[in-house]
C-alpha cells in the first residue's frame, strides 16, 4: 500500500502541492486526474522518491521513502515499474535490449531465460516482432508499449503510468487502455495512472483522485465520479467529454 500524507512541495515561490493526502491500496487501479500543471506529475515523482516533499510523507508498504538511505530507496524502487510519458526507452538499445535491461541488471537469469521472458513481455503488449528495432524506428504508440513491456519485466507490484495515452491517436489510446486493464487483472498489480484523459480513466480505473490547483480536491470510485455534485470536478469531466465528442 502507498500512503501519501499531507505532502507539500514548492519550487521557488510556486506552491505546487498543497497538503496532498491519498491512500492507494494493494491491487487497486487509481487514476490521478487534473488539469495540465495541476501537480499530477510532481505527485507521481514523489511516489517513487524522484522528488522529496518539503513537508509530509510518502510511505510504501509502511516504509517512509524519504527517511531511508539511497541504497534502501533503490531497493524499494525495484517494486515499481514506471511508464514515462515519452516511453523513456534507451535509444542506444533496441526494443529487445530495452526489455532485457532490468533483467540483465537485477537478476542472475541466463541469457536463454532472459530471452524467453523478454519475448513473453513483448507478446503481452502485442509486439512480438519488433525486438530488433531501435526506438527511433518505432511509432509513439509502439514505443510506449515496449516501455510497458520493460516496466513489467521484473514483475513489479506497483506500476505507475505517466500520461499513458497523451499524444496518441484514439485507437492506439484504446489499445494502451486495454493493456493497462489486462495487466492489472493478469498480474494483480497496483496501478497508478496519472492522466487528464477522462476516456482512459473511465476505461481502466477503479478509483479517481482529482487534483485541483495543487490540492487533493476529490477522491472516490468511478461510480461516485459519475454522480458527484462537485462543480469543479464536473467542469473538468465535462470538458473532457466535450473533447471526446458529445454523444
Amino acid at each position: 500500500m502507498i500512503r501519501v500524507s499531507h505532502v507539500n512541495k514548492s519550487f521557488g515561490d510556486k506552491h505546487v502541492l498543497k497538503d496532498v493526502s491519498v491512500d492507494i491500496p494493494e491491487g487497486e487501479t487509481i487514476a490521478i486526474i487534473g488539469r495540465s500543471g495541476s501537480g499530477k506529475s510532481v505527485l507521481m515523482k514523489h511516489l517513487i522518491g524522484l522528488m522529496q516533499p518539503d513537508s509530509g510523507s510518502v510511505t510504501v508498504d509502511g516504509i517512509d521513502i524519504n527517511a531511508i538511505t539511497y541504497a534502501e530507496l533503490r531497493r524499494v524502487r525495484r517494486h515499481f515499474g514506471v511508464l514515462f510519458q515519452g516511453g523513456a526507452l534507451f535509444d542506444s538499445m533496441n526494443a529487445f535490449e530495452n526489455v532485457a535491461f532490468p533483467l540483465r541488471t537485477f537478476t542472475e537469469m541466463t541469457e536463454a531465460d532472459i530471452s524467453r521472458v523478454v519475448k513473453e513481455c513483448l507478446a503481452m503488449v502485442e509486439l512480438e516482432d519488433v525486438g530488433a528495432k531501435l526506438p527511433s524506428e518505432l511509432s509513439g504508440g509502439m514505443q510506449k508499449r515496449v516501455a510497458l513491456a520493460r516496466a513489467v519485466a521484473l514483475q513489479p507490484r506497483y506500476i505507475i503510468y505517466d500520461e499513458p495515452t497523451s499524444g496518441l491517436d484514439p485507437e492506439t489510446s484504446n489499445t494502451i487502455d486495454e493493456l493497462i486493464r489486462n495487466l492489472a487483472d493478469r498480474l494483480n498489480v497496483t496501478s497508478i495512472v496519472v492522466t487528464h484523459d477522462m476516456h482512459s480513466v473511465l476505461n481502466i480505473a477503479d478509483r479517481a483522485a482529482f487534483i485541483y490547483e495543487g490540492r487533493m480536491h476529490w477522491t472516490g470510485t468511478i461510480e461516485a465520479l459519475h454522480h458527484s455534485d462537485d462543480q469543479i470536478l464536473k467542469a473538468f469531466v465535462t470538458a473532457n467529454e466535450y473533447k471526446i465528442g458529445p454523444s
Partner: peptide
C-alpha cells in the same frame, strides 16, 4: 543531456539503478 530531457535517467533511477 538527451537522456535527461527524454526521462531516460529517471527511468534508470526508478528501476532501482544508481
Amino acid at each position: 543531456g538527451t537522456m535527461r530531457v527524454t526521462e531516460q535517467i529517471d527511468a534508470l533511477e526508478t528501476m532501482g539503478l544508481n
